[in-house]
Design a protein around this nucleic acid. Structure first.
Length: 525
RNA sequence: UCCCCGAUAGCUCAAUUGGUAGAGCGAGCGGCUGUUAACCGCUAGGUUGCAGGUUCGAGUCCUGCUCGGGGAGCCA
C-alpha cells in the first residue's frame, strides 16, 4: 500500500513538473523552431552530444525532427540547471526550455538559450559514440543506431519514397489490393521460398503477389499491391535481403509499351519527390545530387540482344580496362600516402589532435585500399563473364553493372529469351524465342530495380509454356480461369523499395535502407 | 553451393623477419574554451574468436571449427 502510494505520489509530482513546464512554454519540435524565434519554448528530446566548459555548456539535443544546440550559460541560470547540464549523459532523455535564437554557428541554424532543464531519464554508457564504428557493431545495435544522423536521413528518404509510391498509384486511378503472404503453391523456383508449417500443411512465404494481382486487374482495371516479400536465396551480396518490400502494379488493357511508360513515369516521379524534399539529407549522406538531377525522361531502351552486343563489344571492354587502370592508380596513390601519414602520426612532437586526425585518415584510406583491391581482383572475372556471355542466359549482376554504367540514366532492357524468364510472360509475336518483358536497371551498378512484363493472355500458349516448365496445371486453375473469362492484354511490374532507396541515396549496401534488415544468418535485433 | 578476405581493450585500429600486446575514443577525475566528432593532463581497462599443432618462444606460422565481410550463381 505504502509503496503504491509512493509511486502514485511520485508520478503525480512528475505530472506536476511537466505541467509547470507546459505552463511556462509550449513544447515544439526542432523542425518548427523557425516559427518561434524570440519565443520561449520547450523541446522534448534526447541528448545527442554535449561540450562542457567551465562557463558555458553546449547541449546538442535531438527530437527525431532535427538537432538543436542548447546553450547553458553558468552566470545566467540557476545553479541546479547548470549542474544538470554538466551531468547529462549521451542519449539521456530531457526536456529543454529556452529562448529561440537564429544563429548560423549552430547546427540547424537555430539555438536555444536555455533557462530550464528537466532530465527525464539518465542514460548509462550509451554504446554508440560519435567516433567511428564498424558496421557489424552498428547493426548489432540497430535499435539504438536508428537514432543517429545517417540512419535518420535514410529512413526519412525511405518514408518519402514509399509515400511517393502510394501517391503515384492512388492519384492515377489504381486500386490497392493486398495479396496473401501465405502462398500455397511454390510456383517458380521452390528452392528460393521460405516454407512454413500451416496447421500441418506445407506453405510458403510469398515472393510476389503478381498472379493474384492479375485477377484483381481483371476485376478493377488498374491495381497495385505493396508489402513485404521473402526470398530464401543464399545470396550474401550488397544487393540482397531475405525480406524486402516490393510494390507491384498490374494494368488491364495494356501492352508492354504501356507498362513501360508507367514504370518510367513512376520512377521519375519518385526521384523528383526525393530531390524536392531531401536535398539536405542527400548531401549529408554524401550523395551527389546531380545523380538524381540527371534522371530525365525518356530512359534508355535496349533490347536484350542489343545488351548482349554491348557486352561482347569494345565499349564494355574499354569501360572495364579504364576502370581497372583508374583503380590501380588510386591503389598506388594510397600505398604511398598511408605510410607517409603513419610516419607523420608517429613522429615525436606531433599534437595529439593531429595524431588522431591522421590515424582516422589512415583507417579510411586502408578501408578504401582493401575495397579497391577487392574490386580490382573481380574485374577480370567480370570481363570474362561479359566477353563470354552466351545469348539465352539471364544477365548477371556484373553484366547489369556494365550496361548501367555505360548510361547516365536508368536503362530498360527488353525482350529477353523466354527460357530464362517466368512462364507467365507474353511471347513476342514477332519472335517466339522472346518474351515481352523488361528490366529497369538503375545507374552505377545498383542493379535491377524493376522487373516487369506483359502477361500471356492466350490460354493455349500459356498451357504450352507451363508444360515446357513442367508445372502442374491443377494449382493454377484459378489463374487459368482469367484466360477463360474475358482475357485481355495486360501487364505490370514490381519495384524493389530497398534497391531504389539505396540507389537514390548512393548507399554502398542495401541493408542500410530498412530499419531491421534480414540477411542470411543475421536476424538480431 | 563455390572462390577470396578477415576476427587484438566497451568501440575504432596498431604491433617490423616469430622475441616483454600499444594508441585514440568512450568511462572516471581535474583544467580550459561560442564549443562544432572541441581541446589539454591524469586514472582504470586484455585468456589476441574457439580447439589443436610446430617452436626455447606464437597476436604473428600450420590444420580444423565458429562467426563476419565481399564476389559468383540466383534475384528486387
Amino acid at each position: 500500500m505504502v509503496i503504491q502510494w509512493l509511486i502514485m505520489k511520485r508520478s503525480w509530482i512528475e505530472c506536476y513538473q511537466i505541467d509547470m513546464v507546459d505552463m511556462m512554454s509550449t513544447t515544439v519540435t526542432i523542425s518548427k523552431l523557425n516559427e518561434h524565434v524570440g519565443e520561449t519554448v520547450t523541446l522534448a528530446g534526447w541528448l545527442y552530444n554535449s561540450r562542457i566548459g567551465s562557463k558555458v555548456a553546449f547541449l546538442i539535443v535531438r527530437d527525431g525532427t532535427g538537432l538543436c544546440q542548447g546553450v547553458v550559460t553558468k552566470e545566467e541560470v540557476e545553479p541546479e540547471v547548470f549542474a544538470d547540464a554538466v551531468h547529462l549523459t549521451q542519449e539521456s532523455s530531457v526536456r529543454v526550455t529556452g529562448l529561440v535564437h537564429a544563429d548560423e554557428r549552430a547546427v540547424g541554424g537555430y539555438e536555444l538559450h536555455v533557462t530550464g532543464l528537466e532530465p527525464v531519464h539518465s542514460a548509462v554508457e550509451y554504446p554508440i559514440t560519435l567516433k567511428a564504428h564498424g558496421h557489424d557493431f552498428l547493426f548489432k545495435h540497430r535499435h539504438l543506431w536508428l537514432r543517429s544522423r545517417r540512419p535518420t536521413a535514410i529512413m526519412k528518404i525511405r518514408h518519402t519514397v514509399i509515400d511517393a509510391v502510394r501517391r503515384f498509384f492512388n492519384d492515377n486511378g489504381f486500386v490497392l489490393v493486398d495479396t496473401p503472404i501465405f502462398a500455397p503453391s511454390a510456383g517458380e523456383g521452390a528452392q528460393t521460398l521460405f516454407s512454413v508449417d500451416y496447421f500441418g500443411e506445407p506453405m510458403y512465404l510469398a515472393q510476389t503477389g503478381q498472379l493474384y494481382l492479375e485477377s484483381a486487374a481483371m476485376a478493377y482495371g488498374k491495381v497495385y499491391c505493396f508489402g513485404p516479400t521473402f526470398r530464401a536465396e543464399k545470396s550474401k551480396t550488397r544487393r540482397h535481403l531475405t525480406e524486402f518490400w516490393m510494390v507491384e502494379p498490374e494494368i488491364a488493357y495494356a501492352d508492354l509499351d504501356d507498362v513501360m511508360a508507367v514504370a518510367e513515369d513512376f520512377v521519375y516521379t519518385i526521384a523528383q519527390r526525393v530531390l524536392a524534399e531531401h536535398r539536405a539529407d542527400l548531401e549529408f549522406l554524401g550523395q551527389d545530387v546531380a545523380v538524381l538531377e540527371r534522371i530525365r525522361k525518356p530512359f534508355y531502351r535496349l533490347t536484350y540482344s542489343q545488351a548482349v552486343d554491348i557486352l561482347h563489344g569494345p565499349q564494355a571492354r574499354e569501360l572495364l580496362e579504364k576502370d581497372l587502370a583508374e583503380k590501380n592508380a588510386r591503389i598506388e596513390e594510397l600505398k604511398q600516402s598511408i605510410p607517409a601519414k603513419e610516419q607523420e602520426r608517429d613522429r615525436p612532437g606531433v599534437k595529439k589532435y593531429r595524431q588522431e586526425q591522421l590515424a582516422a585518415e589512415v583507417i579510411t584510406e586502408r578501408e578504401e585500399l582493401a575495397d579497391l583491391q577487392e574490386q580490382v581482383k573481380n574485374i577480370p572475372t567480370h570481363m570474362e563473364l561479359a566477353a563470354g556471355f552466351e545469348w539465352g542466359k539471364d544477365l548477371g549482376g556484373s553484366d547489369e553493372t556494365i550496361i548501367s554504367r555505360l548510361h547516365d540514366r536508368p536503362v530498360f532492357v527488353t525482350h529477353y529469351p523466354r527460357g530464362c524468364k517466368a512462364f507467365y510472360m507474353k511471347q513476342d509475336p514477332h519472335d517466339s524465342r522472346l518474351v515481352k518483358n523488361f528490366d529497369l536497371l538503375a545507374p552505377d551498378g545498383y542493379g535491377e530495380i524493376i522487373g516487369g512484363s506483359q502477361r500471356e493472355d492466350d490460354l493455349d500458349v500459356l498451357l504450352e509454356r507451363m508444360a515446357e516448365e513442367g508445372l502442374a496445371t491443377e494449382p493454377y486453375e484459378w489463374y487459368l480461369d482469367l484466360r477463360r473469362y474475358g482475357s485481355v492484354p495486360h501487364g505490370g511490374f514490381g519495384l524493389g523499395i530497398e534497391r531504389t532507396v539505396a540507389w537514390l541515396c548512393g548507399l554502398r549496401h542495401i541493408r542500410e535502407t530498412i530499419a531491421y534488415p534480414r540477411l542470411m544468418g543475421k536476424v538480431y535485433p
